[in-house]
Design a protein around this nucleic acid. Sequence first.
DNA 1: TCCTATGCATAGGATAGCGAGGTATACATG
DNA 2: CATGTATACCTCGCTATCCTATGCATAGGA
Lengths: 103, 103
Amino acid sequence: MNFKGTLPTLILEALEQEPSHGYRIAQRIKERSHGVLDFKEGTLYPALHKLDNEGLVESFEGIEKGRPRRYYRITESGHGILAKDRAEWRELSRAVTLILGEA
Amino acid sequence: MNFKGTLPTLILEALEQEPSHGYRIAQRIKERSHGVLDFKEGTLYPALHKLDNEGLVESFEGIEKGRPRRYYRITESGHGILAKDRAEWRELSRAVTLILGEA
DNA sequence: TCCTATGCATAGGATAGCGAGGTATACATG
DNA sequence: CATGTATACCTCGCTATCCTATGCATAGGA
């Protein structure tokens, strides 16, 4: 079960905490939502690459447990977009909740 | 600005209040969200027809101000789906808010 | 008379997310 | 040693959603 349009924001939020790699980001989102949000790899990696192309995150090579990993960190503009996305989420979720009833 | 995936639920909610026609439903959503949510006609009508095909709403002819209107009312199964959609919205919005911070 | 709002509808295009598949390594279990 | 599972990355094709643009038609105000 997932929420259309929130994935880029959730990725940026994860990277705001600490640089990470794709698989770990997906796990983090799932864990932090208590299993409610569960984005698939076929969704996550393209989204991550898109954020990279847009310059909101940047990647670097890393080694973990003896194996190479593709790490990502949030950029300056990524921080800015995240702040905007957060504000937009609040506005939209309030609007829907207003209509559908209390969350 | 809009929220992907919430339109069918918002339509059902509007029709739960009273039977209505397409144009009026769109206005209602916009008004009740204080202008935040604003689904276009090219989005609304196909969504309405789909709900009709799925049997969640049913249409009937009506006259308003001397002109024919296509009215819709929510069906029994529409009520059921609306209840499920509401619950799902709460679960998902809570999950995202949990991660992104207080709404 | 012309513009705007109302009212319904479809066509074409963009994008998000999903399922399915492919590749590869580490580690535990049998 | 073999097999399975979790980790880790990636791509392709499909569907659904939403948008813009366009068309048609009427009512009422400027």
